[in-house]
Design a protein around this nucleic acid. Structure first.
Lengths: 211, 211
DNA sequence: CTCGATTTTCAGATTTTACTGAAAACTACT
DNA sequence: AGTAGTTTTCAGTAAAATCTGAAAATCGAG
């Protein structure tokens, strides 16, 4: 992904070519940002970029279009697309009379966020809880014997398990099929705002006309 | 970290040495699991392992003890410890009459989870929101002109921002200084359980006697 | 079934990230 | 100021993750 760095003056009369360039640059930047997030989350940059591209354009795209736009290899696109399908954040669409497969991103942000949350819990939390159960059995507490250290170990393991267990329960409510309800609950809970340092929460004020 | 793989029969009479070996193995396994999580989160395995070691033992430890137990270099421990201090999940403790620095993990799981959440939002969400604001300005919507694609772009950017904005607000309530209150709210919300496939939620039933 | 178009796979190359170890910096004490 | 114990830094190295490209597999139409 390369940028078109020409200085597009904000105040000049806007012609179609300029608007197009601006659109592409904005898309590229979104793709780059989402890709960077991907690395922070432990998924590959390309996978996140492919998703970003499909989301931000909204269009179904085939492998070659994706390769071209992101400048990555066919194999890389193939693997990224497969993972995204597993995450459930994109889907295949077929054009009749065309053998190519096209891919389109889930367009509803809340469905998308739920899918991401679901997958991250599966990767980040569930394995830990499984491990905690096993570990507890490695050093059994034996009645009568006062093994202070082993009692401490179990206490700590239990506390961690309780913490993540609660998080998982909440997240499943959010991410499960009935998760849409949580969106509402979340909005209610969010009543009294807390706010980030650099007041972003609502810098743009809905003029885009989102649903 | 190496494992002591001797087959410690569950049913045999337990002597002190065996109990010790079991304790160490259980600790090592916890350290390994937490370390693996660390990679999934995009922090270094060693950093997570150091934290796991300090948490699971509960003891203040100095650089040399950590190096020895985890089998990593001095420099690595130094850097990991610094990051953990920045995250706010461990603290320095000094023993009078001893020039070494000792480190001890935050022992309250909820404080720890809040610190982790705070740091992850800072790394994962805030930069994205910053970027979204900038990107919107790259391709301004101009009154009158019907630039359908640019309107679409803004709509999608706004939807993402709203989604993450809400998540951030909720998370700040959870992770902020007043976050302890959320623990209670969370428990309430969690009333009707959802449950994971392999029923872990409460396999061990509080006999460890957590606070 | 055959053929050309398309997708998948994976060994090896590349890039990114993490780690080591020793030198430099720091610190508390004399 | 001198010194010994301790921590930090960072250039170089090692390990891990990611990506490429071409061969193999798959697919759909005829």
């Amino acid at each position: 992904m390369r940028y078109f760095g020409m200085p597009l003056s904000r105040s000049s009369i806007k012609n179609a070519a300029q608007a197009r360039a601006q659109l592409l640059e904005a898309q590229d930047r979104f793709i780059a940002s989402w890709g960077r997030m991907g690395s922070v989350w432990g998924i590959s940059r390309t996978m996140a970029e492919v998703h970003a591209l499909l989301y931000i354009t909204g269009a179904p795209m085939c492998t070659d279009e994706i390769m071209e736009r992101l400048g990555v290899s066919r194999g890389n696109v193939s693997m990224s697309v497969r993972s995204l399908l597993e995450w459930g954040v994109i889907e295949k669409v077929r054009h009749p009379g065309d053998r190519k497969e096209y891919f389109q991103a889930e367009q509803d942000v809340w469905s998308m966020l739920r899918a991401i949350a679901r997958e991250r819990i599966k990767r980040e939390v569930d394995p830990l809880l499984d491990a905690l159960d096993e570990i507890g059995e490695l050093a059994p507490e034996v009645e009568g014997q006062s093994q202070e250290e082993i009692r401490e170990l179990h206490k700590r393991l239990d506390e961690i398990r309780d913490g993540f267990g609660l998080i998982t329960t909440l997240a499943h409510k959010f991410a499960g099929p009935r998760g849409a309800g949580l969106q509402t609950a979340a909005k209610l809970l969010a009543k009294a705002p807390v706010g980030r340092k650099k007041t972003h929460a609502s810098k743009r004020s809905r003029k885009g006309g989102a649903s």
